[in-house]
Amino acid sequence: MNGSDIIFYLLAALTLVCAVLSVSTRQIFRAAIYLLFTLIGIAGIYFWLDYQFIAAVQIVVYVGGIVVLIIFSIFLTQQAGEKLPKQKIGRKIFSALAVFCGFGLTMLQVYQHDFIETENEAITTNVADIGRKMLSTNAEGYALPFEVVSMLLLAAMIGCIVIALKSKPETK
C-alpha cells in the first residue's frame, strides 16, 4: 500500500462516513453540511484521479451552488436547533431496502465490467481539449447536446424571471 492508496482510502472513508451521517442525522442543517462534505470528498477523488477540471466543476456546481441553495432554503423554512421528528419504522425499512437495491445494482455493474489495464501513460485532460470537444460538430463532437442544454437553461431562466416578475398595480 503506497501513499496514493492511503489518500484514496481516506477520501473514500470521508465520503462514505459523511454520506451515512447525512441521512442518519436528525438535524436538517447538519444533514446539509454532511452532504457538503460528501460532495467535497468526491471532488477530492476527482483531484486524486487528476481530473482537475471535473473536480473544480464539482466544487463550483455542487458545493458553491446546490448546497448553498439547500442551506438557504433551510434558513428560510426551519428553526435553528430543532430536531426532525422520528421516522416510522416502515419507512426506515423501505428506504434501507431501496438503498441496498441501489448498492447491489452498482456493485453488480462494477463486477461485471472488465477493467482493461492500459500500458499508456496517464494523460492530463486539458481544459482546451474539453472545450474543443464540446463545440466540435463532427462525429465525436458534443455541439448539439451542448446547445440543447443551454437552450434548456435559458428557458428555465426566463421561466424564473416570469415567475418572479411582480405585476404592476394598475394606476387609476
Binding site: I33, L36, I59, V63, G64, V67, V68, I71
Partner: peptide, 9 residues
C-alpha cells in the same frame, strides 16, 4: 474561483 465558493459555507 471554485474553492473560494466554499468560503461562504
Amino acid at each position: 474561483s471554485a474553492v473560494s465558493s466554499i468560503m461562504v459555507i
